[in-house]
Design a protein around this nucleic acid. Structure first.
Length: 586
DNA sequence: GCCGTTTTCGGCCCGACTGTTTTCAGTCG
């Protein structure tokens, strides 16, 4: 079993233990262990061989033993036994809001409920309300919870969440008396998918912001409203929460509501070790009775989140890195690298026109790039095998190249156009055009669009992609796993081997910024950058508006810990031109 | 189950909210 599969098992053990009513700290130890394993960059096999797995924080004697067993045999009797002892339907019930392990076990014991269907039945029959600790209201909430789970329980793409959130941030800013506004939560951390939207406002009088938030046009239903906190369901099904705090509390609250939960847990442990207590109200002395309330006597005035980090002996940690991985340990040792910023980008390479499956002409795309202030724009339409996307024949491709050269010569646009292709990677790792054709292009994005029945075979797919990375004309690898978020898993492929092959052959890997792709995943970019692989943020634009996806690409690159220098398309035109020529000449 | 510049045992982040209670357990983020 590999690292990811083992982490999944640990994760599941944690969930199962939760349902059996185990000590919550033991439960957390398994979830922590799963995360520690996922974040581990070294080769797991080597660690096990060298007997150094126990040095990883979060992995103790018991977990090391279980991980080792899973690695060597692919099985774990403890896990099998545990799994057999818990009804599978109970795990599903954890997804119903308001239901946790205690309530689920009570329902199971008293009413024999072991699936969502039986739970709904029991509620409809009024049996749930009679249980101790339950009541009419709980029963009703469970029923709506089950119903809403289907319709609104889904996660949302970051881009869609941002489209919904941006007008709310703007609206809140205009309210009289509002001193600060920010989005928070996973949206601010740049997670690829978002559960619900979190907003934070600083104002002395919470009422105007609360009123606007609960009555704005996008609201379908107000699901909760207290003095300083309101929850609404938006018309598109997204859940949104607003919290209003006094200004002096704002940055503590912003840090708190940005999370992640795991990051917060670590930060608070760190505060405790310094005889301090951290909460959304402030940073107080550990035994201060004012802690945890509006009168909290904070030991510092926070004028930014950085002040909080500083007081706890840390260099600033950008929101994108706050996943509770190793960011706190790193920020203790020294300043984190300055992450890439939106303004650093000077162009992009993977873009389509209406010659293949795009919706805009070459000129329209060039004009849009001009408007964005880009120095260069790469055109990479589909190759001939992608006939469903009107892939270009050799003749059409070469005609497009000529047109691009002519447009550049005409100086009609400020932006320099590069002529490329998004070339299909064929079954055996061959490319879709002859070398003589590829040689006439400025660059080649190589992408898999057809699995040829290799969906299950990781080794074959990896070999196919490694082979293409050895091809002299290939510049960069397109969407490395082919995943479509919330829709389909990527193909099974050994990313470590892909990264190694890219490094060995001086090839780049694309960070495809299309909201549904965000591929290669942010979790691999530090590993890639450490091996010297250059990242290219590409919007995979199919129309002029699509060019703006690079904004999300930058956010994901930040989340992956990338600095400006590690992203190819932050370089100026002259440097890019030179580098492309060098790769082509190899 | 993990972990240790007070500890190898006894802690383990913190507060809000809800619905059930009459002082609090469970859930959530």
């Amino acid at each position: 079993m590999d690292k990811a599969e083992i982490a999944e098992v640990l994760e599941e053990i944690g969930t199962l233990l939760e349902l059996t009513g185990e000590n919550p700290f033991k439960v957390r130890a398994y979830h922590n262990g799963a995360r520690a394993l996922t974040a581990l960059e070294d080769d797991l096999g080597a660690r096990i061989k060298a007997d150094t797995l126990g040095e990883v924080p979060g992995l103790g004697e018991a977990l090391v033993e279980k991980i080792t067993t899973l690695y060597n045999t692919g099985k774990l009797p403890y896990y099998d036994k545990l799994k057999a002892s818990v009804e599978p339907g109970l795990v599903e019930m954890l997804g119903v809001p308001g239901l946790g392990p205690k309530k689920i076990m009570a329902l199971h014991k008293e009413l024999g409920v072991d699936s969502l269907a039986k739970l709904a039945e029991a509620c409809a029959a009024g049996k749930v309300a009679g249980l101790p600790g339950f009541g009419e209201k709980t029963q009703e909430n469970i029923l709506t919870g089950i119903k809403n789970r289907e319709a609104y329980g889904r996660r949302h793409l970051w881009w869609d969440a941002w489209q919904a959130a941006a007008p709310i941030v703007e609206g809140l800013k205009k309210i009289k008396g509002v001193e600060r506004v920010s989005h928070a939560g996973s949206l601010r951390r740049g997670l690829e998918t978002i559960g619900d939207l979190d907003f934070l406002v600083a104002a002395e009088d919470p009422d105007p912001a609360m009123k606007w938030f609960t009555t704005q046009p996008g609201v379908a239903e107000v699901t909760g409203r207290g003095g300083t906190k309101a929850s609404v369901r938006l018309k598109d099904g997204m859940q949104a929460d607003l919290r209003v705090v006094p200004l002096k509390q704002f940055y503590f609250a912003l840090h708190h509501f940005t999370g992640s939960k795991d990051h917060n847990v670590k930060m608070r442990s760190r505060a405790l070790a310094r005889d301090l207590s951290l909460s959304e109200w402030g940073l107080t002395k550990k035994d201060d009775p004012t802690a945890g309330g509006p009168g909290a006597k904070s030991v510092i005035t926070a004028r930014s989140e950085d002040d909080i980090f500083e007081k706890l002996g840390l260099h600033p940690i950008p929101p994108e890195l706050r996943e509770g991985l190793d960011e706190i340990e790193r920020a203790e040792k020294g300043p984190l690298p300055r992450l890439i910023e939106e303004g650093d980008l000077r162009g992009a390479f993977h873009n389509h026109t209406n010659a293949s499956d795009g919706h805009a002409t070459l000129e329209e795309m060039a004009a849009a790039a001009d408007e964005l202030g880009w120095e260069y724009l790469g055109i990479a339409d589909h190759s001939k095998s992608s006939f469903q996307a009107h892939g270009l024949s050799e003749e059409r491709l070469l005609a497009q190249v000529e047109k691009i050269r002519a447009l550049n010569a005409s100086k009609k646009f400020r932006v320099h156009l590069f002529a490329g292709t998004e070339c299909d990677i064929l079954k055996d790792g061959q490319l879709d055009y002859e070398d003589s054709v590829l040689a006439q292009l400025d660059y080649v994005v190589a992408s898999v669009h057809n699995r040829y029945g290799q969906g299950e075979d990781e080794a074959a797919m990896t070999k196919r992609m490694v082979r293409v990375l050895e091809h002299p004309h290939v510049t960069m690898l397109g969407h490395a796993t082919g995943r479509l978020l919330l829709q389909r898993e990527g193909y099974a492929v050994n990313i470590a081997k892909i990264i190694a092959a890219a490094a060995a052959n001086g090839k780049m890997i694309e960070l495809n910024a299309q909201p549904q792709r965000l591929d290669l995943d942010w979790r691999y970019w530090r590993q890639a950058a450490d091996k010297g692989v250059m990242c290219v943020i590409n919007p995979d634009a199919h129309d002029t508006a699509g060019l703006r996806y690079v904004r999300l690409g930058v956010l994901i690159a930040r989340k992956g810990g990338l600095a400006k220098e590690q992203v190819f398309n932050t370089r100026p035109l002259a440097a890019v031109t030179k580098a492309l020529k060098k790769i082509a000449a190899k």
